[in-house]
Design a protein around this nucleic acid. Structure first.
Lengths: 154, 154
DNA sequence: CTTCCTGCAAAAGATTTGCACACGA
DNA sequence: TCGTGTGCAAATCTTTTGCAGGAAG
């Protein structure tokens, strides 16, 4: 975790930015909540515990800056606000969004490579990045569905 | 195209909604701009030509209503506003977004089925819908890139 | 000193909502 | 008549920006 902070500091200083206490606090918050998908407000609320004076604008500016440096990823789960998680594009994964309970889990796979090759062959479009969102029912909610009955015909 | 309107009317009346002139105008606008990805403002501007009195709120409410009836799809291309296109979930396709010129093209494929089966096997998550966005360079912009030179090392 | 950063408050942009009126079954 | 639909304006929500002051090299 110290290493992640040092890596971030390096990426910042490389471009004449500083690892200020606020930025460090934001990074630490994201580090200690990896696996979650925090919105700017979430980060703000969490950081405020130890940094009561921090401003929401600073959170937005920092998240924006760090996303630009590929220290973290901005993700959009379709709920109208941006969310953030540590990690660069290389290690990007997809998201499974449960339409019932809203839980978001992650799924790591590179099966898209063949799809991207096909896209290129068919259309000449060269894919450099992708975003995949799979909506459905998580295991737990699926168990619930069974009981509720599945033969509903509206 | 008449058929599409009739199908929409049926879906509306089935749930005690009416195909009002405003709603019809919005549908016709979407019909005559299929293949594009209009935002609410876009639709508003287009409909206003023939229906100067229509209100923006009505456009929002109608798009919302029609999306709920699966008459059209709400899509998110990552530019901060929702976009809409005719068609139900069944015939949904993916979007190729050019990061240089911003052009959005469509790509129809069901290669995801194997991915979804794998997701289910591995995680128990049952996919019912998906959204795939592929970012990259379209054929034209790729041609441009070649000339500009590609060995940049920043 | 000069540049980068910050907090605050105001602004911006997309979307939603309250309300009174209009219209069709 | 009654419930649905509408336009307008105000409200809401997320995110951005202007500005004056502050810290670091």
């Amino acid at each position: 975790m110290r290493d992640d902070l040092e890596a971030a500091r390096r990426k910042l200083t490389e471009r004449d930015h500083r690892l200020t206490p606020q930025r460090q606090a934001i990074l630490e918050t994201l580090l200690s909540h990896s696996g979650e998908h925090l919105s700017a407000e979430d980060v703000y609320a969490l950081v405020k515990k130890n940094h009561p004076d921090i401003g929401l604008a600073t959170v937005y500016r920092t998240l924006d800056l760090l996303a630009g440096l590929d220290v973290l990823q901005r993700i959009d789960l379709g709920d109208g606000r941006a969310r953030y998680e540590l990690g660069d594009e290389e290690h990007y994964h997809h998201h499974l969004i449960c339409v019932r309970c809203g839980k978001v889990t992650e799924f790591d796979i590179d099966l898209l490579e063949s799809l991207e090759a096909l896209v290129f062959k068919r259309t000449g479009f060269e894919v450099v990045d992708h975003q995949v969102k799979l909506f459905g029912l998580c295991r737990e909610c699926r168990a619930g569905e069974q009981r509720t009955g599945g033969a509903g015909g509206d």
